[in-house]
Design a protein around this nucleic acid. Sequence first.
DNA 1: CAGCGCAATGTAATGGATTACATGAAATCG
DNA 2: CGATTTCATGTAATCCATTACATTGCGCTG
Lengths: 359, 359
Amino acid sequence: MSAVGSKDKGQGAKGKSTKAAPQQNRVRTVKEIAAIAKVSVATVSRALQRPEVVSEATRLRIHEVVKRLGYTPNALARNLRTARTRLIVALVPDIANPFFSEVIRGIEQVAHETGYSVLLGETQSSLVREQAYADMVAARQADGIITMSHRVPTIPIDGRLPVVNACEYVKDSQISSVYIDNVVAAGAAVDYLVMLGHRDIAFIAGPPTSPICVDRERGYQLALQRAKIRLNPALTAVGDFSIEAGERAIERLLSQARSFSAVFCSNDEMAIGAMRALSSHGLRVPEDVSVVGFDDIRFARYTTPSLTTVAQPKNALGREAMTMMIELLNDPQVPPRKRVLSADLVVRGSTAPRTSKRG
Amino acid sequence: MSAVGSKDKGQGAKGKSTKAAPQQNRVRTVKEIAAIAKVSVATVSRALQRPEVVSEATRLRIHEVVKRLGYTPNALARNLRTARTRLIVALVPDIANPFFSEVIRGIEQVAHETGYSVLLGETQSSLVREQAYADMVAARQADGIITMSHRVPTIPIDGRLPVVNACEYVKDSQISSVYIDNVVAAGAAVDYLVMLGHRDIAFIAGPPTSPICVDRERGYQLALQRAKIRLNPALTAVGDFSIEAGERAIERLLSQARSFSAVFCSNDEMAIGAMRALSSHGLRVPEDVSVVGFDDIRFARYTTPSLTTVAQPKNALGREAMTMMIELLNDPQVPPRKRVLSADLVVRGSTAPRTSKRG
DNA sequence: CAGCGCAATGTAATGGATTACATGAAATCG
DNA sequence: CGATTTCATGTAATCCATTACATTGCGCTG
């Protein structure tokens, strides 16, 4: 199923004959610009950094030279001197997960408003890779890290970590974090299923290493308690957030123990997998089984039926994370904060009142 | 529908009293390490860069100090001196589009095999943002750019641009590029629809600014020609690659002129939108209308019905792009290459032989 | 007109690592 | 044993921009 044939349109091998090329377009330095504009390097630097302190005549002359020669100051030298990069790295476990893209948008919005740039690092939930990106901060290539993982890398700089945790959080950590109240949000989703008359409600959990997954499970359990439904362990399956995991979870649930008339999934991708697996077993959604997801990714609206899910305030999560990061960078003394946003259940087509046919 | 309530768990404002904190954990420099290990800075640097040239005793001693004090060399200083960062920036128009994530995986695989790091920049197809990221190369913060856009930013360094174009390409440009043969791939998709008996085949085009979109349209038109089907302009609609654009395109097509029994979409997200719009008009896929997408994103398999689509060799595209980048960085004299991979049609459930009921 | 202040610019120190070259000591050779 | 490598390490130049401090020249005041 992967690509096989391929052709190569190499455009003629000119060989190494042109090795000592004319190099008309060399890299420029302040010195050169200064020499050509007949000023000192300090004046060039000032003309670019704080134009108001340079006389108009010289300023114009310097800018002309800069433009003509296409000079861009070496950011390494500048950052080395000023000890800041105005760059922050956002760590995403999986860029393929559409949930994160919206969060990142929020981060970037605030970043641009405040003159920062954002670069993304995909970690695939690997500790090694998280640490590798975090080391960029230790190595002064970036000012801070916003991580969307439940682990927080160690970057001991001045005893303070310029790290913000978004969407996830670490228990008992001293890290500023933004996330939603997952217990309440999950509870609301299950309450809704209960309200529709469901009593045998299955749960597809996420990786238990992540506190927010534990919270979602807890929310599920508390909602059952509220409804005086005895928790049936056979109705809980664990997945890793992937579509495939959702499918497998349903296989397991169906092959086990009692039947169920609703499933609550810890994220939308597993819900998509669940719907898929249910229908391939001849079960209709929502007539036979109601399905609820979590996150409200872009595709949730476009599944068949469209997915009822818990909408996280993705943009707000990102914006808040970046805002906290800026606070932290401006004053490393500010104590870490935890900000808890709320999420809303979005009811779509994958949920329906329980029918007596199954259950 | 967005988050409203929120609480703030600020953990007690300790105030600025601890302003002159002990700073036990200051940032270290080679100098300090050298002093503590009782060697020169050169030896410290060597112990870290080329351990084999340092005697075992001193090497161990230095490493012990480095580890104990948690020293990380300042990458800015190093990169300034060595004039390379071993960092490349991958520019993605839209990280929310799952197509790119697989390509990026490919890029990262090769990058890690060769000791490079990859950071991602989302451009939202904005020229300004593309240029801003490209300037990082001019400013020496990154060694090169892999762009997945149909525009190529200008970075005149030594008269050479360390830029590789992946998935897209620019006509007549001197930029190394990897992409698939979109004319052939699109043609194969339409040939398949013809083979199923379809003759009224609609087309949802992508933004005509992108050469690959023009190619896909050309592939569609050539396939019709081969089948001796007269091109009907009323059966072509243009979209911007979003799900919503796919929906709107179907609205337009349905409201216009003749009917059709198949739609070929320039990407999967528009195909998802198209399926959605068709079924909300009471048209069944594939019984009434067959739908074909392009890209084979992860969700294509999980739509209802699952989507027939042209599978791009996403991983290979990424790997090849990064491989070219490394070639370019190792020898700026190598002439630009265009590498054309091939794509395969993946037949799933959204296509069926034409029935006589509609058409 | 001396003296002061201010504006504009220049000189040189600085940031933190790498590395060419220099040096000294030990090992090898004839 | 003296000469020549070889090995380990040190000294200092270098990468390039920023910026504290120094200098110059001018206008204004008393």
